[in-house]
Amino acid sequence: MTLIPSAAIRDAFTPTGKLRASINLGNPILANVGADGRPSGVSIDLATEFVKLLDAELNLVVFDAAGKSVEAVVAERADCGFFAIDPVRGADIAFTAPYVLIEGFYLVKDGSPITTNAQVDAADNRVVVGNGSAYDLYLTRELKHAPIIRAPTSPTVVETFLREGAEVAAGVKQQLEADAKKAGGLRLLEQRFMVIQQAMGVPKSRGLEASAFLAAFVEQMKGCGFVADALRRHKIKGASVAPVVE
């Protein structure tokens, strides 16, 4: 089925004449800086495809952390964005179903006595997270005893973890694996603590018709193989395409 936006939908997504897409470079699975210095990745590919439907120009609004990216959409400095689904964010943002699933893991030092996720939530275990990230929001709700230390961004979690001498770092598995390899003397726990559901979102103020159109777009991109092709093209490992919602 071909998606055809109405004039009202075009206006909802391009109030400035362009689609301002909020991009978070703090999650390398979805976006990164290419060899040419420009943003590239699955989220940029989706934004590019979406703006074709709207017959508009694309303006990438780039941030180094998820929290900043979310704030831009909530404040309507951006017209759509790419985030992990979370009820806190859902107060102001209408999410699509997820298009990609990624895993959140814990990381510890090689000599740490912590070997399972169940051991993490203790008063003497300081857990470092990326400020405003999906796993920050999740662990803020779930951890009852372990204090949380917030690094400025997800890519600085391991750096902060080592500098602070903390007991645990939390984050996207692939980011932690890459940082652990560079630093040495670190290991991931064996099981994920959460599945992070990456979706597109639009300010709720843009209306139900706009959010429904965006949701339909995401389902089409999953169903036709676009998202899977983008993951392969950008050589992303450890992420999976979310199931199509019938």
Rank of each mutant, 00 (worst) to 15 (best):
A8D: 14
I9F: 08
I9V: 15
D11M: 13
F13T: 09
K18Y: 03
L30N: 10
A31G: 10
D36H: 03
R38N: 12
R38Y: 07
P39W: 04
T48C: 10
K52Q: 09
D55I: 03
L58F: 09
L58E: 07
L58Y: 07
F63H: 14
A65N: 14
S69W: 01
G81K: 03
F82D: 03
F82C: 05
F83L: 03
A84F: 10
A94H: 00
P98N: 07
Y99L: 05
L101M: 11
E103G: 08
E103Q: 11
V108S: 08
D110A: 15
D110M: 08
T115P: 06
T116H: 05
N117M: 05
V120S: 04
A122R: 14
V127M: 08
V128D: 01
R141N: 13
K144R: 11
K144W: 03
H145F: 13
H145G: 07
A146K: 05
I149K: 03
T153A: 14
V157P: 00
L162C: 06
E164K: 00
E164R: 05
G165P: 03
V172A: 08
Q174D: 02
A180D: 11
K182W: 00
L186N: 05
R187H: 13
L188N: 04
M194A: 15
I196R: 03
K204Y: 09
A210Y: 05
A216H: 13
C224N: 15
A228M: 04
L231M: 06
R233D: 03
G238A: 02
E246M: 12
E246S: 15
